[in-house]
Design a protein around this nucleic acid. Structure first.
Lengths: 142, 142
DNA sequence: GATAAAATTGAGAATGAGTCTCAAAATAGT
DNA sequence: ACTATTTTGAGACTCATTCTCAATTTTATC
């Protein structure tokens, strides 16, 4: 958690921005769990403790977290953008339930190595990749 | 093009639906090129020839085309859902150049089989999958 | 620690892609 | 043609996200 704060602060300073209270609260809440999150969930989570952080500020802070390399935009699910941690996390792929919205994270070195192989063939320099599937989770497919 | 029409008609009949004029126009326009498309672009394209197809009907027809297996939802770009042909096209993954926007389509049976294997382990019923990477293409990485 | 300039915030209005409603029009079976 | 059913266009609506702007907070400077 402290590491994330340092990374974020360093990024903000480099851009002439400030690590304000709302930004600190958002950062803390984002990294309080290892889950994927979306703005609504994050807002609810924050509201449990702090009545003074607005949705607008969350929407404004997320691009800063993305730019700083701490999180990245991930799936779009139920018409909502979702985000996931990137700092200190291995790559993984997603199985997304279209019915209940559950996200199963799966590690796969295989998928990664295949993509790398294909990228090499096409002289493509991969910065970021995404592997995933949509469908029904165990519970919802009964 | 005729094949697509047959596939679509067969699907519609199986659902007790009709291949109406607007649906025919939409189908024709979608398969007039091999490009990815979004609703706005499709609407503009259709409007050049036909003044009588509404956005609502396009939005209503796209899920039918998806269900019939002719197209699938693809990338989301500039806040818009994009679609791509699937009928007669092998599954492929995308290498998207972040600089010039070029999309390289790559075939890979391997990626598909890995996803299927992982889904089985997690009792997940895959309806749709997506594999891709962002980065720099050959030209842009020089 | 007071002050002022600059950055940031909260609240709510605005935007815009996608969905829904419903009366009118097209379709298919008889 | 006649009727029942499906489909359509137009526009209202939804809802995630973005924008606006006056009020507040922050930081640098005294």
């Amino acid at each position: 958690m402290e590491k994330e704060k340092l990374v974020f602060e360093k990024y903000l300073v480099s851009k002439g921005l400030k690590l304000t209270k709302p930004r600190k609260i958002i950062l803390d809440t984002v990294f309080a769990t290892h889950e994927h999150f979306n703005v609504d969930g994050l807002y609810d989570q924050i509201r449990k403790k702090h009545k003074d952080v607005s949705r607008a500020t969350i929407y404004r802070t997320i691009p800063l977290l993305v730019e700083s390399g701490l999180i990245k935009q991930s799936l779009r699910c139920l018409a909502k953008d979702h985000y996931e941690h990137t700092y200190g996390h291995d790559r993984h792929l997603h199985l997304i339930c279209e019915k209940c919205g559950k996200i199963i994270e799966v590690e796969s070195k295989e998928a990664e190595s295949i993509l790398k192989k294909l990228a090499k063939i096409h002289n493509f320099d991969i910065k970021e990749y995404n592997v995933g599937a949509k469908g029904l989770c165990r519970k919802c497919s009964d």
